[in-house]
């Protein structure tokens, strides 16, 4: 299994040798600093505390991190096909499953990296610029949650949930990439889910279909349970996790099955 890391290193090499990747990382850094600077230097009657600034910015930055990670995921398999490099990649003493897994792992690592950059910057920069209040009441006042916990605890749980959401978006993008070999389709579909998933769910909700409870978009993350406000009264955390889990397994199984079976021609 040691050698599997070599495959991940290869995928990392491919991700970080591209200029677009560094553009993405640079964009996140500049956007974060820009947002904090705007907040600080534009005159306003009231100055936010650092936690509140961090929470707001995380909401905005996550959107871009999701887009970037989805793009990397979409390119990961589709580009190997469009450039023809897939042929030389697959004629090595590795099963297709493991090669695919190394790609998946490297994408998740990229998502983690962007998430870590966001965490460090939103925390560090805002601590520097804004007043610090570490009382538990922040969680209610700034984050809108009913929980009684330290702000950092809430933030970490919130980040964890956002990562879970990111994993699903990446998995969908990755599946589209492997199944249709088209990065454009993968990107468009994943971003549609990111931006309109909730809206679509709400419409279905309003129409009163019973199966709407099982629509993935309502269970992309578990933040509602963290905030003590489930999207529907009967929803519980285990139910949401189960729905998420079933979709996840289906997507992963489809991706691997099709990639393993596919004839690599043309």
């Amino acid at each position: 299994m040691f050698n599997f890391w070599q495959l991940v290193r290869n995928e990392n090499l491919k991700i970080y040798s591209r200029i677009q990747t560094w553009f993405m990382i640079g964009f996140i850094v500049i956007l974060q600093i820009g947002l904090s600077a705007l907040l600080k230097f534009i005159p306003s009657e009231f100055e936010p505390i650092s936690w509140a600034a961090m929470f707001e910015q995380t909401y905005i930055l996550f959107f871009f991190i999701a887009i970037f990670t989805v793009v990397v995921a979409a390119n990961s398999v589709a580009n190997e096909f469009s450039s023809g490099t897939i042929k030389l990649l697959l004629i090595r003493p590795w099963s297709r499953s493991k090669i695919l897994l190394s790609k998946y792992v490297s994408i998740l690592l990229f998502g983690l990296l962007l998430g870590a950059i966001m965490f460090v910057l939103t925390l560090g920069v805002n601590l520097l610029l804004f007043p610090f209040d570490n009382s538990n009441s922040v969680v209610h006042e700034s984050f809108g949650s009913v929980r009684d916990m330290r702000p950092i605890e809430y933030i970490l749980l919130y980040y964890g949930n956002k990562f879970i959401e990111l994993v699903m978006l990446v998995t969908i993008s990755f599946m589209m990439s492997a199944v249709f070999r088209s990065s454009v389709l993968a990107i468009v579909l994943s971003l549609l889910i990111l931006t309109s998933g909730m809206g679509i769910a709400r419409i279905l909700f309003a129409l009163g279909y019973e199966w709407v409870d099982y629509v993935l978009f309502l269970h992309m993350n578990f933040v509602p349970y963290l905030d003590g406000a489930p999207r529907k009264e009967e929803f519980t955390l285990p139910f949401s996790m189960a729905v998420y889990g079933v979709y996840y397994v289906i997507f992963i199984a489809t991706t691997w099955f099709i990639f393993n079976k596919r004839d690599v021609s043309s």
């Binding site: 040798s17 450039s83 030389l88």
Partner: peptide
């Protein structure tokens, strides 16, 4: 067909790791 955005050496390194 090799990875065009990598150097020749990086391409070989890539395959050597496999």
């Amino acid at each position: 067909e090799m990875y065009k955005y990598l150097t020749g050496y990086q391409n070989l390194l890539h395959y050597s790791r496999m």
